[in-house]
Amino acid sequence: MIPDFEYGFYVWTSYAVFALVIGWQIIQPLARRRRILAELREELALETGEYDDPDS
């Protein structure tokens, strides 16, 4: 299934670098959106007086 390449270390490391960097480009916007929406939710709850303080 996984091809056995000559210079395999260099080929597979390159594809791993590609996968990691592309993966980060996918994850970063998703994580940031999640954080912004969570903060927005908190702000809206504070304004409407529905804020449930997790530390209290």
């Binding site: 970063q28 916007p29 998703l30 940031r32 959106r33 912004i36 929406l37 927005l40 939710r41 809206l44």
Partner: peptide
């Protein structure tokens, strides 16, 4: 995706964001 996030972050106190996310945020 990144531009949408940046826009959302900058406009978080503006009416259109409040309107769009007031319900489900």
């Amino acid at each position: 995706d990144r531009s949408r996030n940046e826009l959302l972050e900058q406009d978080r106190r503006k009416g259109w964001v409040r309107q769009a996310f007031g319900g489900d945020a």
